[in-house]
Simulated assay, not measured.
Amino acid sequence: MQHTPVTVVTGGSRGIGAAISARLAEDGHDVVIGYRSDEAAAEKTAESVRAAGRRCVTVQVDTAAEADVERLFDTAAERLGPVTGLVNNAGVSGPVGPLAEADAEGMRRALEVNVLGYLLCARRAVRDMTANGGGAIVNISSVAATLGSPGEYVHYAAAKGAVDTLTVGLSKEVAADGIRVNAVAPGVIWTEFHADPQRPAKLASGIPMGRSGRPEEIAGAVSWLLSDDASYTTGTVLKVSGGR
Rank of each mutant, 00 (worst) to 15 (best):
H29I: 02
V113N: 00
S93T: 08
E112M: 08
G206W: 11
W190C: 12
V168L: 13
A104P: 04
P197M: 05
H3I: 14
G106K: 10
V222I: 08
G210S: 14
R123F: 06
C56Y: 02
E112H: 04
E105W: 06
G220W: 12
S212H: 09
A19W: 00
E78K: 14
I33S: 14
C56W: 01
N89W: 11
R127K: 15
D128I: 14
L99Y: 09
V188K: 01
R71W: 14
D62P: 04
S142G: 03
G94L: 04
G235K: 02
P200K: 01
A176C: 13
T146A: 07
T45W: 02
E105F: 03
G243N: 11
L80F: 06
G206D: 13
Y35N: 04
R124S: 00
G134L: 07
T58V: 15
K172G: 15
A183K: 01
N182R: 03
D30C: 11
G117S: 09
G213F: 05
A104W: 05
R127I: 05
S93K: 10
A219F: 12
G243W: 11
P95F: 12
P98S: 04
A102E: 06
V9T: 09
A122W: 01
A46H: 04
G134F: 02
V69T: 08
A41P: 02
A125R: 00
T167E: 05
A77D: 08
L80E: 05
V49P: 07
A52V: 11
G148S: 01
D68Y: 07
T234S: 10
A221V: 04
A25W: 04
T165V: 12
S48M: 08
V168W: 15
V49Q: 07
A204E: 14
V126A: 10
S223D: 08
N182K: 05
P98I: 03
L238P: 01
Q60A: 12
A64P: 03
E66Q: 13
E39Y: 15
K172M: 13
E217R: 07
Y35C: 09
D30V: 07
L170W: 09
L116E: 02
S13L: 11
R124M: 01
T63H: 14
D74S: 09
A110D: 05
M209A: 08
M129H: 02
G94N: 09
E216A: 11
G17L: 08
V69Y: 00
A158G: 15
L119A: 12
S21Q: 04
S231W: 08
L111P: 09
L226N: 04
S205T: 10
V96Q: 06
H155W: 01
A122F: 02
T58A: 15
G210K: 05
T10Q: 14
S171V: 06
R50L: 12
G169R: 15
P208W: 09
L120C: 11
Q60F: 10
S231D: 15
S149M: 13
A159S: 05
D228M: 10
T63I: 15
L166R: 00
I33A: 13
G117P: 01
R55Y: 06
N132H: 14
A122H: 02
S212E: 15
A176V: 14
